[in-house]
Design a binder for these strands. Structure first.
Lengths: 209, 209
DNA sequence: TAGATTGTTAATCGATTAACAATC
DNA sequence: TAGATTGTTAATCGATTAACAATC
């Protein structure tokens, strides 16, 4: 595995890599797989798949295809999944609680190691082995537990404030579930899962058929 | 309000409309708003905002900007939010339960009116006023309650099957939360909220700074 | 060798942006 | 009228695809 440090990766490529990666585990594993077969299983074109992978190096072998095990390792490395990530939940409402109980991330190396809330009623309770802590302890805990990612599941009206507090506590990347566009320093990595926007896309699609 | 039936809307435009729409409610409402001001609040360029809106007609007034109330109504109409949508939750695990308790969709006209599960332990229980029903009742309930949208929150391994069952029960559009690409008839509208892909994007971003 | 498939180039497609006449 | 801002055109930018020499 010899991954090129391409610095101009269109960001749209990355979720496709995740999809390729997932497919490699779902398929009966013949030792080799071609871009054509990956195409059939993902719906992306074979050319696009080859192009996407080529951003990072030459992993295939002409006439034969890609070695499945090697490709798994390669994409795992590209996506940063070859290490453990410590995650915290910020806001233990319905969604925060659900994420505390969700084990789907764990398989890929994301472990929820802490949860924070501002509600005295909730602080001190334990959910799925995780004790809910006061947000005032965030800086200390982020340091002690080496937390890299915050899952922001607070109500929209306090999301900006909670995000700033998380950043001040040392969190460098945030998965924002609140229906609010966060304004944060450029060095903070943010992804936004905006369910309201998504359900409105669906409503748009249904409305104009 | 005179909305053009433009048939070639780039699908990327739609989530931006949602964002504009949201901002209109968040801002102190002067009667008019310019693409420049919308730009400052959303981060999209003014040219892009004007272009996006122009796909659907001429809503602005040169030299003055857009009438806020009219623009709200217009986007509401474009997104199909000027009516009620009946929604069901399919799968009452952690996430399904969270969505049953989530009221954020209601404001935009999406009401959860039913929940389904296959687990006899759960069937019959009531959560947030919604009784959990057997999936075998789905066809009947979808018809009776006029359900248009299914929120698919079952485990990945049964997602395809559950989705097919939903479609056979009359569901025409699905918000898929399972980490699986669904293969469904073309006329079924699907949006995919893929948390695994999203957290892997974050991991990618952190890994290569 | 014949057939298959990669990696890459060049062509195409589609979305964004700059610029400005029209207009309030 | 002077200033502001739209809607739209043309130019630019960036991503996708077709095609194919290289190679297994």
């Amino acid at each position: 595995m010899n991954i090129k440090k391409a610095d101009k990766i269109p960001s749209i490529v990355v979720p496709r890599l995740s999809r390729y990666y997932r497919i490699l585990f779902e398929l009966d594993s013949s030792p080799l797989i071609s871009s054509k077969v990956l195409s059939e299983h993902t719906g992306f074109t074979a050319a696009q798949i080859r192009r996407d992978l080529a951003y990072f190096g030459q992993f295939g072998s002409p006439g034969r295809g890609y070695n499945v095990e090697e490709l798994k390792k390669t994409i795992k490395n590209i996506l940063g999944l070859d290490r453990a990530w410590n995650v915290c939940v910020i806001g233990t409402g319905n969604l925060g609680m659900a994420l505390l109980g969700y084990n789907g991330f764990k398989d890929q190396g994301f472990e929820v190691v802490a949860a924070f809330d501002s509600d005295p009623e909730k602080i001190g309770k334990t959910v799925n082995g995780i004790k809910i802590l006061s947000i005032s302890e965030m800086a200390k805990v982020v340091r002690e537990k080496n937390i890299q990612i915050g899952l922001l599941t607070v109500p929209g009206r306090v999301a900006q404030q909670a995000a700033e507090n998380a950043v001040n506590s040392g969190i460098k990347s945030i998965m924002n579930f609140a229906p609010v566009h966060l304004k944060l320093p450029e060095n903070v990595k943010v992804r936004h899962i905006d369910m309201t926007v998504e359900i409105e896309r669906l409503s748009f699609m249904i409305s104009r058929e």
